[in-house]
C-alpha cells in the first residue's frame, strides 16, 4: 500500500486516496467546435503506460483536494506529487 505525500496534508495511507486517471488532459474550451473524432479523443482515449505515468489523485478521505502524481507503474515508485495547475517537476 502506497504512502502518498499529499501536497496539502503530507504523508498519508493510500486508503485515504482515490486514483483519478491520466493527468494533464484539459477539457476543450469549445467542445461544440470539435468533430466527433476530436471529442472522442478527449473523452475516451487514455494511456496505460508501463513505466513513468502522470496521474490525477484525490485525497478523498482527507482534504478532498485533487493533485497530480508521477508514478512508475512498473515498480509503483512515486517520483513526485504536485498541485493542480503546476508543471510536472520531473520528466
Amino acid at each position: 500500500m502506497f504512502l502518498i505525500n499529499c501536497p496539502f496534508c503530507g504523508e498519508r495511507e493510500q486508503s485515504e486516496f482515490k486514483a483519478g486517471g491520466e493527468a494533464h488532459i484539459v477539457r476543450p474550451k469549445q467542445p461544440t467546435e470539435l468533430s466527433d473524432d476530436e471529442w472522442a479523443e478527449y473523452l475516451f482515449m487514455r494511456k496505460n503506460i508501463k513505466g513513468v505515468q502522470f496521474e490525477r489523485w484525490n485525497h478523498v478521505h482527507g482534504c478532498r483536494k485533487w493533485f497530480n502524481m508521477v508514478r512508475d507503474t512498473s515498480n509503483d515508485q512515486i517520483k513526485a506529487v504536485y498541485k493542480m495547475g503546476e508543471k510536472p517537476p520531473v520528466k
Binding site: G20, R27, R64
Partner: peptide, 13 residues
Amino acid sequence: LGKLEDYLQTEWP
C-alpha cells in the same frame, strides 16, 4: 460531490 469538486478544482479553478 466528488465529481463537482473535480471540475471545480481541475477544470474551472
